[in-house]
Design a protein around this nucleic acid. Structure first.
Lengths: 263, 263
DNA sequence: TATTGATGTTTTATATACAAAACAATTGGC
DNA sequence: GCCAATTGTTTTGTATATAAAACATCAATA
């Protein structure tokens, strides 16, 4: 009774079990054999055989290094990227981020909050330089980054407390907040300013601007981020040019999402 | 008769069709309705209903913005990342890349070639600085980047020609090779040098070192990459310190893969 | 080398997933 | 506001996917 009142009339068991195999193999640190899969799924070997056969034929599974073992195939990666590029906000933001990149000359990024992580949905690279640190599809801990504070500014104090509950916050740099109180201070600061700027004189090696994006309900749903190395990031121009441009882009995206505030 | 001699004895049709729905929705630029899915799959609506029902319940599909439409769900993203972190080379390289990051103080990355793209498998960020341009899971055009040339150095001339066949190569920067001949020159250069270095005086804003990783068969299977902004990248130290360290790390990874050459 | 246990594969009787058809609920055109 | 067409949902007889059991193959141990 506990786990599965699954036995809905409309469940197609073949699909259900096949997907569970993918999940199990995703969670497994190492390739699994047919029998291991069958055991993990509490399934007859003959059924597991047919499922694996199908998954393999469709390239959702591929052979592991050891004989008779299987791991996730490349198709699951394709799906993952399709997921990212199908996010509605990605489509809306893409041309605007490209435009921001072109007018500023530095790299621009769009990210959202997913669980405790910042999830990068897409980016447009500075056209100069070979160093192409693209970020799409990446996850990083939200509590530790300027972009994370920006995204967390949409949460109430209670929500933020819940967010910190059970989260351990090791210090990545000496500026990393390591407690709820410290994180709250960062987020509050961001909320009053309306942006986060970190510049090279404080953090050697790079500069970054993060500005929130709001939806029609006034909720923070994403973050526009502009970043580059100090050498391409003139401090004088930062506040007079880069920041207003970034804010304008974020607002434009917000408008397209139906935001009607004046931030 | 044309498309599917699919009718293997061991094919489980529910799973087959469910996965095809995921692929179709991944390729679709916009969410689809039940009927659209049924039509695209040449399937009865009642069957499509049951498949979608199952996928939705398992969170491989989620509701689109419009009513009665569906898109890929977050689960497919989880699988995508599981795929990346399960790649054997990722596991071997991870601690060594972290170590390289710690001794050099700048960001390190591991990437492989997938089709025409450079696929980033993992990275370790410089501990200083808020600018966290992580790259895991990203794809970029191989022909246009130093890392790409590094990875392509494993190919023979014929393979490289095949690689270029039908690939259009727009110039991203003025240094971008735009023909097979130009690309071949870059790759040959890389092969004789054993690495690619691009430094800020040529490419404003950032510096980068790329070194290949070999497997036991002597094939180039991956690329170790070290990159950072000029300000953190001392030119003098580049050749005397960063480059040898990077090469040592790449060789160490190669050794763990069974490489026995002396490069 | 013989023996045991485990795993991968094939067969097949039967439980069940499936598609047609009926139904319900929307939508769009006049 | 009606009709027609399209879509989402439910039912149900039947074609078929399934799991047990048999078979084949391999690995380890004595």
């Amino acid at each position: 009774m506990s786990e599965s009142a699954n036995h809905d009339i409309y469940f197609v068991p073949g699909l259900h079990r096949g997907l569970r195999i993918l999940e199990i193999l995703g969670a497994a640190k190492t390739p699994m054999s047919l029998s291991e899969i069958a055991r993990a799924m509490d399934l007859s070997r003959s059924s597991a055989f047919r499922l694996v056969y199908t998954l393999r034929q469709m390239e959702f599974l591929k052979d592991g290094e050891q004989k008779n073992t299987y791991t996730l195939g490349a198709k699951v990666l394709n799906l993952g990227f399709a997921y990212l590029s199908n996010q509605p906000i990605t489509k809306i933001a893409r041309p605007l981020l490209a435009q921001l990149r072109d007018t500023t000359g530095v790299s621009t990024h769009l990210s959202v909050l997913e669980g405790h992580n910042v999830l990068y949905l897409g980016s447009h690279q500075a056209r100069t330089g070979f160093v192409s640190n693209m970020v799409t599809g990446t996850r990083v801990e939200a509590y530790a980054t300027a972009i994370g504070w920006c995204l967390l500014s949409g949460k109430s104090e209670a929500e933020l407390a819940a967010f910190c509950k059970g989260l351990d916050m090791p210090p990545i740099t000496k500026h990393t907040p390591t407690s709820f109180q410290m994180l709250k201070a960062r987020v509050d600061q961001m909320r009053t300013d309306g942006f986060v700027v970190s510049h090279g004189f404080r953090e050697p090696g790079g500069s970054s601007i993060a500005v929130p994006v709001w939806d029609q309900a006034g909720k923070v749903v994403a973050c526009v981020n502009l970043s580059g190395p100090d050498s391409g990031f003139d401090f004088d121009k930062l506040k007079s040019f880069y920041l207003p441009e970034t804010k304008a882009t974020a607002l434009r995206i917000s408008r397209e999402l139906g935001y009607e505030g004046s931030n």
